[in-house]
Design a protein around this nucleic acid. Structure first.
Lengths: 238, 238
DNA sequence: CTAATAGTGTCTATTAGACATTATTGT
DNA sequence: ACAATAATGTCTAATAGACACTATTAG
């Protein structure tokens, strides 16, 4: 039996054929009544010219961890560090990438539309695309399915948490927040029920300011710490 | 701009240093009042002689997909194909394995104790270990943390689903099922509340048989199709 | 009989849905 | 005043917790 030290010295990482490891991110926001996902027009083969998710190969020198890699690619495309990031799932198979056995670790983040948009407006290969429009587009790899899984996850969270709040700007009205939840679950939510939950959570701070579109001005709120972890024991109807 | 075909012909998968990709599995069961996890005594460096999770490097020729790899290693260690498998999370960082940048895709499965135990009793490097005992053991890599994440996931599911039923044999009593849920959430559950949910779901088939420990014999039930997907809109208290 | 466990009856408390009512703004 | 949207009042329905009660077995 060799010592661990000797074992590691003799260990050859090239003994096994390499698996392609990419980290892809599903970035979502809410703007003017629509949920939108950030897509990038691919400048390389395969799927050259197709829209796909931001992300790319793991960079073993730059990235200390998978989440590092996700945050790095998010900041590269949007110029901001989102306040909500979670790992969604990992897809890996022999045939999802023509270059070989490929594993994609999928992260997702929610962010305010405005904050990210000033950065992406400066380039023409990055765009927010309405989820409703995705059917018309043919996306690279299995990215359409990856987006679907992320959205389904948020749909569930809209029923028992306030996680969707991270798709809004820092200050927002309760109606706007309700609209994000409604867009996710694709159903109207009773205003009274929703407001009761906002109050019961105790996690929203009234800024004292108001915002008006049409009709009575609405109070502007901010999310406080802990909102990402808060859970209701009873779901909204789905 | 080269054609996609030319690009793929010139593509060299060895241009990037290989990332180590492993698939590890957290196999859980319930037996005699305890939740147990299947551990394997490692026969190789690193962590030679430590207990760790079943799993190993992705085999690019044998495995068509990540889930394939998980199922293959589960069957290798237990001799059975579990009825419930889900992907838990993926951990990856520069320093979790001394051999290099390593990614571990973690799957988890629930299975009946008896079905798997006849197979593992024939070897001495595989064992069911009570979750309560894990604190005394020092596990390989970050496997203790991976188990913790899987158990926490099932703890949540115990509050709004019947997924824990897959840790029991084909026929079981409602008390046994309740005990699995109680072991997961570490709290007693009202028998009446639990039975109400069993009835409301309509997903349990009374076998007509009974089973007796002490006291009144209990009816034996079987799970029917769809139980893995069933969700309550209201959680048990956590 | 008692002990033990399975299973039921029934009351209370909580909370989401429904929907009517009031409040506050612009035109 | 009217339209539009925000915010509240209040009733009902659904369902989990609490816990007492009955049922069925072994010894």
């Amino acid at each position: 039996m060799t010592s661990e030290q000797a074992f590691l010295q003799n260990y050859d990482p090239k003994a096994f054929p390499a698996v392609l490891v990419t980290v892809d991110t599903v970035l979502l926001t809410y703007h003017e009544g629509d949920l939108k996902v950030l897509l990038v027009k691919r400048g390389n083969h395969p799927y050259l010219g197709y829209w796909g998710l931001p992300g790319g190969f793991l960079n073993q020198s730059l990235d200390l961890s998978l989440e590092d890699a996700a945050r790095r690619s998010i900041e590269a495309k949007t110029g901001i560090q989102p306040h909500y990031v979670e790992q969604i799932q990992t897809q890996g198979s022999q045939d999802r990438d023509p270059r070989g056995w490929s594993v994609s670790v999928v992260y997702s983040a929610l962010m305010p539309y405005q904050a990210a948009t000033q950065h992406i407006d400066t380039v023409d290969n990055v765009a927010w695309v309405r989820l409703a429009e995705l059917g018309e587009l043919s996306l690279a790899f299995d990215h359409a399915a990856l987006i679907e899984v992320a959205v389904e996850r948020y749909r569930q969270k809209a029923l028992y948490s306030f996680v969707p709040v991270f798709a809004l700007p820092k200050a927002f009205t309760i109606s706007q927040l309700r609209q994000v939840h409604e867009a996710l679950i694709d159903k109207p939510i009773q205003r009274k029920s929703f407001l009761r939950r906002v109050e019961a959570s105790g996690l929203f701070k009234d800024t004292g300011k108001t915002q008006q579109e049409r009709g009575r001005p609405a109070s502007l709120f901010e999310a406080t710490k802990g909102i990402a972890e808060y859970r209701f024991t009873r779901n909204l109807e789905s």
